[in-house]
Design a protein around this nucleic acid. Structure first.
Ligand code: FES
Ligand code: FES
Lengths: 146, 146
DNA sequence: AGCTCAAAAGACCTTCATGTCCTTTATGGG
DNA sequence: CCCATAAAGGACATGAAGGTCTTTTGAGCT
């Protein structure tokens, strides 16, 4: 699996909030999970971590919900991938019983390393803002289930 | 996880047999699992499938074990990855609740598609023979656990 | 034919990511 | 101050991948 479900859901959740939190106050988990057709409580745990990291604002209670913070749009996808543990997987050796190691490389190491670098460049170089820039709320269609 | 354990073990197993089945008759699962430090019975199931696909020869009973077939060296890594289900994962949309689709792409689709193509090119263009060519049995060190 | 060896087959267990539910905590409105 | 609301927290369930064990099958040897 290239990316975990957690990563995919996290990205969908952030994009949803980033797109719609414009005129509105807060967006509730209920709505996000329903529209994106993502398991509600599972998404809740992920959104929770995004809040803790400051990637989103999360407010409990009356008129609570999720919203964008100062860092939301500046957050690179790499941060999400680290949060969900996807980066350690990317760096693990293809031959699973080994530890990836430049000095004692497996036969695929030197072929794979450049690909890894490209992934990292993509993830580090793409922010939530980049993905949302210039999009209208109709863009939700392209992040929700088909 | 970029590649599954099954894929890694499969690759290790094939490489081991490809490297050592030169002067010898057959190589037993016992030896392969012990040297590579890979779970024996789990590897057994994987080697079984490699035999069924003709990627390796497998012989039961007295003087049985695994050996190379006519296709072993010509087998691209893509075949192994397909066997272990890793390719369907590569082609699945990052936003897990979606189906990857060129016509209705998610915001990451066009950024990820080229990377996927590179992976596929690497996997399709690299054969077991390529990885083993010109290597002596000492090369086992680079495919076994560290 | 009968024995032995080694893979195949299939039952079963473990682990971990994912997913659900229920209770607690925090927030704002009346 | 009390109530409604919505996230947080933690207990528990599920499913798929990974891993182990035992029995069966097939091949060669004598
Ligand atoms: S990928 Fe195998 S050693 Fe780096
Ligand atoms: S990767 Fe999302 S639609 Fe293709």
């Amino acid at each position: 699996m290239i990316f975990s479900k957690s990563f995919g859901y996290a990205l969908q959740g952030v994009l949803y909030v980033a797109l719609l939190s414009d005129g509105r106050d807060r967006i509730q988990l209920d709505e996000i999970a329903r529209i994106l057709m993502v398991p509600r409580y599972f998404l809740g745990k992920i959104m929770n971590r995004l809040g803790k990291e400051g990637i989103l604002i999360s407010v409990k209670g009356h008129n609570g919900g999720f919203g964008i913070s100062e860092t939301t749009f500046k957050t690179p996808l790499l941060t999400l991938a680290e949060l969900t543990g996807d980066m350690v997987q990317l760096d693990s050796c293809v031959l699973k019983s080994r530890t990836c190691n430049n000095l004692n490389p497996c036969p695929l190491h030197h072929k794979i390393e450049p690909l890894r670098e490209e992934w990292k460049k993509l993830l580090a170089g793409t922010t939530i803002g980049d993905l949302v820039k210039g999009r209208n709320p109709d863009f939700i269609r392209s992040i929700s289930a088909i």
